[in-house]
Amino acid sequence: MKELIKHARELLENGEVAAVIGYRQVSAKRTKPVIITDPEETSALVFNEYCLNNLAVYLTKARIKLLCKKNDKVLKLAITAKPCDVHSIVALIQENQIDRDTIHIISFNCHGVAKDFGFDFNGDNLASKCITCETHKPLYYDALFGEVKETPQASDTALARIKEIESMPHNERFEFFKSEFDKCIKCYACRAVCPLCYCQRCITDKTIPCWIETSSHQRGNFAWNVIRAFHLSGRCTGCGECDRACPADIPLSLINRKMSMEAKNLFSFVSGRSLETPTLVGSYNEKDNNELFM
């Protein structure tokens, strides 16, 4: 932690960055995002198994970009990011939402995070994404901290659940999604926490004409959850934030993960892993599977 604080402090004191987006501890098993512009405040920064938020969501916010404008200069923004959060940053760079040159990535050797605040950190309470994580060391960074530690063992129950849903007959699967989407209250917290839901005007907010009914009835909820699944297909990096944010406990990550599996199987593409590979939806390859054309 000392090194993290020292580094962040120097960045601010030397005027290299306008702000540091990081985590501060609020109780034993909970942290929350903090946006620091005053070097004195860097002492609050932490990194541990309760740093659940994917702070990349802040990178596209106009008000955060505004913080970086100092006189005529545009300063960099420092962000503390878990290796998986770096995937979101990469995806944002690849989608031309941010410039690599304007972001200073402070990352960590990561051995996992808890599934939610308040839970002890162990194999039973490991976040689902950490069970299959292949990047305990970040793929891209400007500063790296933290010791390498063993990730607790846990079984991939989410994958088992996906297989189970895949094997359901059509009508049963439909009933499953119907009962899950029925719970949706359309709070849009899933959209709000998603780093890749950065549209200035979401299609659900367009009312002339109204494509997605704003009503939270069955049709409206289906339309919303399905459109979000499609808009994130081949883009979602699997951070699991939508799942964590959903007050109705809808297992959104099952849907997103299934769509990511499809992208991988059909196009050998995994979102947010490389600054060299173009995005899936933004590129065309003659060898792409033609069966998908309707």
Binding site: K32, P33, V34, I35, V57, K61, R63, I64, L67, I185, K186, C187, Y188, A189, R191, A192, V193, A245, P247
Partner: peptide, 16 residues
């Protein structure tokens, strides 16, 4: 401004 910077503009708070 502080909370304005943090808040992500959903309606979780209002709807629950």
């Amino acid at each position: 401004e502080g909370v304005g910077n943090l808040c992500l503009s959903c309606a979780q708070c209002a709807f629950v």
